[in-house]
């Protein structure tokens, strides 16, 4: 590992538990590089996660880190941010953690526009429990709990976040890492609730069941299917079917939650 990045890791905890070719390590590396590029104060960064493979990431990262219960990272993070708005809060979460068991917390954190950067390690599967389908698993894909093919329709997390009120919404992939780092930087600099949906790969559970058992095959799929927001805007719905649209979807400046609460305090204490 590059020397300047070492201070961001708990090097005695590495190597990580993730499988060979798992994209989680790539996203974690991108997060750390973005933090380094922005020169954030390490002792004021707080990284919160839920449960699952991705939620192990904070354990390797040398910040104030909190590994919570399944789906609840945003609830804990909201408490931390409310109590101490000086802290920079990141939530690292998986697609199941964020959109299934944690779905309600997700939409409400977005609605409040609380200043938390949520990065979804979206590998379309429950990895920690061995490959069950998640709300992000594509229709017809196979999983241990969808042995005949998945009949659930999957979420578009970016659309969900935007309609719930998130004020920065973007999608990156583990293939397009330089772009991913830039998107993370933008999300971290954004004041308000930012969502970054990162298309990730799980060769072990998703790949093996869906004829892409090598990480290379999965990466190739991302490379082939990715289109930029700009190109997508010129494509028909049919042409977009199965495609991964990457880039920034939404950015707006809306009063941030803890700043609004500071005004409540002012009012309660006699100001206007």
């Amino acid at each position: 590992m590059r020397k300047e990045l070492q201070k961001y890791f708990r090097n005695d905890k590495l190597p990580h538990i993730w499988c060979p070719g798992c994209g989680h390590g790539i996203i974690t590396g991108a997060v750390v590089r973005a933090i380094d590029n922005l020169k954030l104060n390490q002792s004021k960064v707080c990284i919160v996660s839920g449960i699952g493979c991705s939620s192990r990431a904070p354990g390797y990262m040398n910040f104030n880190t909190l590994h919570t219960t399944h789906g609840r990272a945003l609830a804990f993070a909201t408490g931390i941010k409310m109590a101490n708005p000086d802290l920079k809060i990141l939530v690292l979460t998986g697609d199941g953690d964020c959109s299934a068991i944690g779905g309600n917390h997700f939409i409400h954190a977005a609605r409040r526009n609380i200043d938390i950067t949520t990065i979804v390690f979206n590998n379309s599967i429950y990895g920690m429990t061995g490959g069950q389908y998640s709300p992000m698993t594509p229709k017809a894909a196979f999983a241990t709990t969808a042995p005949y093919g998945n009949i659930d329709r999957n979420f578009d997390l970016c659309k969900l976040a935007q309609s719930a009120g998130a004020t920065y919404v973007a999608r990156g992939t583990v293939f397009h890492v330089p772009q991913l780092i830039k998107l993370i930087e933008k999300a971290l600099k954004h004041k308000g609730f930012s969502l970054l949906d990162v298309v990730d790969i799980c060769p072990t559970y998703f790949g093996r069941r869906n004829k892409m058992s090598s990480p290379i095959a999965m990466m190739n799929k991302i490379r082939e299917m990715s289109v930029t927001v700009r190109s997508a805007s010129k494509m028909s719905e049919e042409e977009l079917s199965g495609k991964i649209v990457i880039g920034e979807f939404h950015e707006e400046r809306v009063p941030e939650y803890t700043e609004e609460y500071a005004k409540v305090i002012e009012k309660a204490q006699g100001g206007n």
Partner: peptide, 10 residues
């Protein structure tokens, strides 16, 4: 540096 950035294991 794409290989470095894409290496999941640093």
């Amino acid at each position: 540096k794409l290989c470095e950035l894409r290496c999941p294991d640093y």
